[in-house]
């Protein structure tokens, strides 16, 4: 059976759900080896959490250079082991970091690259949804190891637990990967809500909130949802940029997306239109976001949302 590499992903010290999603796709194709890139001394604790899905091996590589030199250092190390083992595929989570990493590895190993896949079949055919959700494309890599980035939340992770063999490997980062140095790092502020790209439900607010995200947050918390925002809301400083959904923000595809006071500009849709169910609250019946809505309420979010929140509370009790 062929070998498939997946890059384990972590949020702080915790394994990310997307790691299980990658392993699930990987196991369809071959024996899964999860790669853990860690700061010195941190590898064992991270590796022990990589158990979701059918994972045969976990390879741990520790180096201070990953944090110090960013994408280039990780790319150099991954390209080295891809070159050595020639796996059928290397699967990485789609994010700014993941896509750049994939691009660099594709260059270094002379391999084909597919980004933003929503699925990968046992035959290594990747599915992408392109052009504003209007087309489905199936494609495959025809040269080298298939370097594929997978969108978070697109594949249902296999919950079966494995107890993979853990191997420690050392790979040095070459000088050519050390041109740009990270001087300081500020991780995003944790707020106790689910991560936007991992959330099953997202409630988003736009200019229509007029700066008051209170009703949006209350409704989100009742549903255990993440909070998103349009660019109008992040530009105005009403919500942090890290919550922006859209072309230049995050691409999300939750089970449920609730858009409140968002008009549905093409750049916003680019980030949310693959959501499975879309609910809209907007006082303008002509707002283009209604074209995407499975359920739309033409109304004021300041009366509809509080009433809905009360309704959820009543339903739960």
């Amino acid at each position: 059976m062929s070998e498939v590499f997946v890059l384990a992903q972590f949020v702080g010290d915790k394994v990310a759900k997307t790691t299980g999603e990658l392993a699930t796709c990987g196991a369809r194709i071959g024996d899964v080896t999860a790669i853990v890139l860690a700061a010195p001394g941190k590898g064992a604790a991270l590796a022990s959490q990589v158990t979701s899905g059918r994972i045969a091996k976990v390879v741990v590589i520790e180096s201070a250079d990953f944090d110090k030199f960013g994408v280039s250092a990780s790319a150099a190390v991954l390209a080295h082991i891809v070159g050595e083992h020639k796996p059928a595929a290397l699967l990485i989570t789609s994010s700014a970091f993941g896509k750049e990493l994939a691009g660099c590895i594709a260059v270094l190993t002379d391999s084909g690259l597919i980004t933003d896949a929503v699925d990968v079949s046992s035959e290594l055919v990747a599915t992408q949804i392109v052009f504003g959700g209007s087309s489905t494309v199936h494609s495959r890599v025809s040269h080298g190891s298939a370097i594929i980035t997978l969108r978070p939340n697109s594949v249902t992770p296999d919950l079966e637990k494995s107890s993979p063999e853990i191997l420690n490997v050392s790979v040095a980062v070459g000088e050519s990967a050390k041109h740009a140095e990270v001087i300081s790092s500020q991780p995003p502020v944790a707020e106790g809500r689910p991560e936007l790209t991992e959330a099953q439900i997202i409630v988003s607010g736009g200019r229509g909130t007029n700066g008051d995200f209170g009703p949006v947050e209350t409704f989100a918390d009742l549903l255990g949802a993440a909070v998103g925002a349009s660019r109008a809301a992040t530009d105005a400083g009403w919500y942090p940029h890290s919550h922006q959904v859209g072309q230049t923000g995050k691409t999300v595809s939750p089970q449920l997306y609730v858009a409140c006071g968002i008009s549905g500009a093409i750049q916003h849709r680019a980030g949310m239109q693959t959501s499975k169910t879309i609910v809209v609250i907007n006082k303008d019946p002509e707002a283009p976001i209604f074209e995407l809505a499975d359920f739309g309420v033409v109304g004021d979010l300041f009366s509809v949302l509080p009433q809905a929140s009360e309704g959820v509370k009543a339903h739960k009790s």
Binding site: S95, A96, E181, I183, S184, S185, P188, T197
Partner: peptide, 8 residues
């Protein structure tokens, strides 16, 4: 990026 803000 979504991973926070780094100075490089």
């Amino acid at each position: 990026t979504e991973a926070g803000v780094d100075t490089m």
